[in-house]
Design a binder for these strands. Structure first.
Lengths: 244, 244
DNA sequence: CGTACTATTGATAGATATCAACGCTGGTGG
DNA sequence: CCACCAGCGTTGATATCTATCAATAGTACG
């Protein structure tokens, strides 16, 4: 079972035939180094990209040359399902760490969307992406620096758990502090101090790109984190995603 | 031709039959006063809501009781197309001004999505909503208060023009400064001063809820506004939406 | 006429950005 | 093998932006 299948099964039940079709999505795979562009603003790619391994992001660069990161793409996430409708990308996608990214042809995507269950799953995934965006807006708009960071780390833990990429309450975080700052609308210096604050409160540790959540309840409380916007199954499959 | 049809025609060409079907969406209409809740967080409404007249918004209320407004819903916008997939709303929708809101049954929505052209149009609309969300994230994350406000006003001018609700370069803005502040992640006091800054620069006037853009180029420059994310037709139908 | 909401102003406090510098690391070329 | 360099994390000092508090005036409304 590939990572996309695993992710969709958080929401829908897939038949054997559905799974077989989904297996085909990971046929054509491309390797990327860290910091490489996958799709540029203005592009109109002819196939859809799916992250299989590593971290990528959506970002825009503004006039002043500053980067705003608007989404993290982790294994199981689509980069550009929009391309079927919109004429061109309004933002850029690049890798943050070394990545394996699948390239899915238009015809295969059409086959996928013809299966009602898979189509529902894909639609669910895009709606969750949108819900994440809304939550990030709240995060940046109304929380201070330490709270923002706490919230983001809670979200990453749950999203990565949903695709089996956590080890207990820790995970690989191959993202630099500058990139986290560009995500949270902070300066790199201030992000660094916020990270230290989380460590000082014994909520996390971070060594060699490995983040350990020492006190998930504390981290959730600090970041006012409520997992409902991730719309994960609340059937006990996840120990972490409970409302609280 | 109703407002939804008009909006979709910014992106797709609709046949007579398509338009006839779209006409049915505005059959059941409900009137709301200002500040009324349309759908609450946790609800799972059984029909889809479409704004016909007035301004509404999506928002969340955080622990501290502060409100974050994550989207404005103007005539032609859907409130809750998600409801077909997700179990429940993760945010609340309320009116900002008096509104007329259509209630569209599930069965009619299904009929709409069976028409390929209409389905493409609806999908386009949801992707644009998502693109707006990404741009708001950049706006709040990386621009200062005056720039944020300038950017937001530019966006509203274009979105309202797309549904024929502008008069030249002015439009009705039935939103209080407190609400604008909750949208842009600012305090009401600071928003007030930012608004005054825009007036002092002779970029806008605002009297009796009527906003006049005196210098659109100046406003765009100040807010680093690039309309590409709205994915409007660039065929000359809009004078205002040109890249610049 | 009072009440609530909205816009406005001034003063002060607090949060975050900016600037500058340093150590550490890994890579790279001589 | 070593010197050099770039990227990253870190620290301190200062400047800037924005929030908060408090007060006032206008307006709509019952």
């Amino acid at each position: 079972m590939n990572i996309l299948t695993r992710k969709l099964m958080n929401f829908v039940s897939l038949s054997e035939a559905d799974r077989a079709l989904l297996d085909q999505t990971t046929r054509a795979v491309r390797e990327y180094g860290p910091g490489q562009q996958v799709i540029a603003e203005g592009d109109a790619p002819d196939h859809v990209h799916l992250v299989l391994d590593g971290f990528a992001c959506r970002y825009k660069v503004s006039d002043g040359g500053e980067r705003s990161i608007m989404a993290y793409l982790v294994p199981g996430d689509f980069c550009d399902l929009h391309v079927f409708i919109l004429k061109e990308m309004d933002h850029t996608i690049a890798t943050l760490s070394p990545c394996r990214i699948a390239e899915i042809s238009r015809s295969l995507v059409l086959q996928l969307t013809e299966r009602p269950t898979i189509a529902r799953g894909l639609w669910w995934a895009t709606l969750v992406d949108e819900a994440v965006l809304r939550e990030w807006l709240v995060n940046i708009g109304r929380r201070d620096a330490v709270e923002r960071l706490a919230h983001l780390l809670c979200e990453l833990l749950l999203r990565l758990e949903a695709v089996g990429m956590t080890f207990g309450e820790s995970f690989e975080l191959p993202i630099t502090q500058v990139e986290l700052a560009d995500t949270l609308g902070l300066s790199a210096v201030h992000l660094n101090r916020s990270m230290q604050a989380l460590r000082a409160k014994n909520l996390i540790t971070l060594n060699n790109k490995k983040l350990v959540v020492l006190d998930f309840d504390g981290l959730k409380a600090l970041g006012s984190f409520n997992p409902n916007y991730l719309h994960l199954a609340e059937d006990g499959r996840s120990r972490l995603a409970q409302a609280s």
